[in-house]
Computed example of a mutant assay.
Amino acid sequence: MHRRRFLLATPALALAGPAAAVIADGRPIKLVVAYAPGGGTDLMARAVAQHLGAALGQNVVVDNKAGGNGTVGSLSVAQARPDGTTLLFATGSELSLKPLLEAGLPYDPARDFVPVALLGITPVAIAVNPEVPARNVAELIALARTKPGGIDVANSGRGGIMHLTAAYLALKAGVEFGHVSYRGAAPAVADAVAGTVDAVVSGLPPLLAQAKEGRLRILAVSIPQRSGALPEVPTLAEEGFPGFDMSNTVGLVARRGCPPEIVAALNAAANQAIEKPDLRRIFLANGAEPVGSTAERYATFIQAERDRFREVVQATRITME
């Protein structure tokens, strides 16, 4: 079954009773965000905290622990008590990609975390400066063939999902891009708008306003189905790269050893939360397609994502150095 259809087919889950009673002592739940306040991940986490708390009948507070590109916050949850009172608002980078690229990572997602619920899938898109003579991916690839290494493609950080997406596309197309890594999406997009680089691979939020104003042209998204935020933009699969599937995700994980009944209560509350219209609006505004899942399906999804990223890392030979 298609991975997003598999998740979207998850039946609505009902809380069997006051879920808060399952969480030890009714203490507040801490939702750790491994990035600074104010970004898209943080905004989505705060919306989740509000509705998760309402479903559980207890307080859920966001705790921003930035540092190490997600490592500091992830490690704090890996070292927390396994009682369900400390959760990580995890992205695919922390769970699936960093272990493949960073030697000596102080946590092991498979060993240290138990999946609770997948909440959103974030498409990656490729966009070009309007002066670049490419109105679709085929034309961009054709242009790259005439200028090996001469088409500069910006990304938000070496070894990140955006970098891997651009490198994997070049590999599949049999061309060579010039990869330019920045510290974050904002400067990468800004240089694409300025024409300092030809193209940029990014999540949707930094691209949408620029594309609306005609300062960037979005060519394709890298998920199997078109994005609800950009229904007119084709997928890379439609553009001649069948099976191309690179995206980021957000979801909830707890410290491994968390009792199954607590995981089940948290999962049910998370699935209730993700159906709330205002939460879904916040997710969509920040480039994430809202989904729900059982804990078991999320675990299967994470393993498939790790396998996919491993294939891409091995094929592209990308390292953090």
Rank of each mutant, 00 (worst) to 15 (best):
Ala264His: 05
Ala264Gly: 08
Ala264Trp: 07
Ala264Tyr: 07
Ala265Met: 10
Ala265Glu: 10
Ala265Lys: 03
Ala265Asn: 05
Ala265Thr: 03
Ala265Pro: 04
Leu266Asp: 08
Leu266Thr: 08
Leu266Lys: 08
Leu266Tyr: 06
Leu266Pro: 03
Leu266Cys: 11
Leu266Gly: 04
Asn267Arg: 13
Asn267Pro: 01
Asn267Lys: 10
Asn267Ser: 07
Asn267Asp: 12
Ala268His: 11
Ala268Ile: 09
Ala268Tyr: 03
Ala268Phe: 08
Ala268Met: 10
Ala268Gln: 14
Ala268Asn: 07
Ala268Pro: 00
Ala269Phe: 04
Ala269Lys: 07
Ala269Arg: 05
Ala269Cys: 04
Ala270Arg: 05
Ala270Cys: 04
Ala270Leu: 05
Ala270Asn: 01
Ala270Glu: 00
Ala270Gln: 02
Ala270Gly: 02
Asn271His: 00
Asn271Trp: 00
Asn271Gln: 07
Asn271Tyr: 00
Asn271Phe: 01
Asn271Lys: 02
Gln272Asp: 10
Gln272His: 09
Gln272Tyr: 03
Gln272Arg: 12
Gln272Ala: 12
Gln272Val: 03
Gln272Ile: 01
Gln272Thr: 02
Gln272Pro: 02
Ala273Ser: 02
Ala273Leu: 03
Ala273Val: 00
Ile274Met: 09
Ile274Asp: 03
Ile274Gln: 07
Ile274Arg: 05
Glu275Met: 13
Glu275Tyr: 10
Glu275His: 12
Glu275Thr: 15
Glu275Asn: 10
Glu275Val: 11
Glu275Phe: 05
Glu275Ile: 09
Lys276Phe: 08
Lys276Thr: 06
Lys276Ile: 07
Lys276His: 14
Lys276Gln: 12
Lys276Arg: 12
Pro277Ser: 05
Pro277Glu: 03
Pro277His: 04
Pro277Asn: 09
Asp278Gln: 11
Asp278Ile: 09
Asp278Arg: 13
Asp278Ala: 13
Asp278Val: 10
Asp278Phe: 14
Asp278Glu: 15
Asp278Trp: 12
Leu279Asp: 00
Leu279Gln: 01
Leu279Met: 09
Arg280Ile: 10
Arg281Cys: 01
Arg281Gln: 08
Arg281Asp: 04
Arg281Met: 02
Ile282Asp: 09
Ile282Arg: 13
Ile282Pro: 01
Ile282Val: 14
Ile282Ala: 14
Ile282Thr: 15
Phe283Thr: 06
Phe283Ile: 12
Phe283Ala: 14
Phe283Val: 13
Phe283Arg: 06
Phe283Leu: 15
Leu284Ile: 10
Leu284Arg: 13
Leu284His: 01
Leu284Phe: 08
Leu284Cys: 01
Ala285Trp: 08
Ala285Arg: 13
Ala285Phe: 06
Ala285Leu: 11
Ala285Asp: 14
Asn286Cys: 11
Asn286Val: 11
Asn286Tyr: 15
Gly287Phe: 11
Gly287Glu: 14
Gly287Lys: 09
Gly287Met: 13
Ala288Lys: 02
Ala288His: 08
Ala288Cys: 13
Ala288Asp: 14
Ala288Gln: 09
Ala288Leu: 15
Glu289Gly: 15
Glu289Arg: 14
Glu289Gln: 15
Glu289Trp: 11
Pro290Arg: 09
Pro290Ala: 12
Pro290Ser: 08
Pro290Asn: 09
Val291Arg: 05
Val291Gly: 07
Val291Glu: 12
Val291His: 01
Val291Lys: 06
Gly292Asn: 02
Gly292His: 03
Ser293Met: 05
Ser293Thr: 10
Ser293Val: 15
Ser293Cys: 07
